[in-house]
């Protein structure tokens, strides 16, 4: 397995033999296809971080993240969400599926 990208809390791996990816969430290692990774990206990117600083919108500052067709459930705090957003962004740049310019701005 090769490391594609590593952030403070998370690591994204590519497994060439199994032709899939793994995300190490700390508590749990999750196997993912590219489609599932795209779906993770979709979910993570649509989380509004601003709402974490508004007690009316997000009272406790947590996000519930369901992955891989409801197989996994994570409860993440603001810092973890920010870190996951960055990991996903940089991961897609490293995989060559996202424009380089994003890496500069990240």
């Amino acid at each position: 397995m090769n490391v594609i990208v590593q952030s403070t809390y998370y690591t994204l791996y590519q497994d060439t033999q199994q032709r899939c990816f793994f995300v190490d969430f700390g508590q749990k290692m999750v196997r993912m296809s590219l489609c599932q990774l795209l779906s993770l990206r979709q979910k993570v990117m649509s989380i509004s971080i601003e709402s974490h600083f508004d007690s009316d919108l997000n009272k406790h500052g947590f996000e519930v993240l369901m992955l891989c067709n409801k197989e996994h459930l994570f409860i993440l705090n603001t810092l973890e969400i920010l870190d996951l957003k960055r990991m996903v962004e940089q991961g897609f740049v490293a995989m060559g599926l996202s424009a380089e310019s994003e890496l500069v701005s990240a």
Binding site: T16, R41, S98, E102
Partner: peptide, 17 residues
């Protein structure tokens, strides 16, 4: 390192969005 991501998807995620 084989590029599994690129083999699975032929456009950029920014375009996809």
């Amino acid at each position: 390192m084989k590029d599994i991501a690129r083999q699975s998807m032929s456009i950029k995620v920014e375009s996809m969005d």
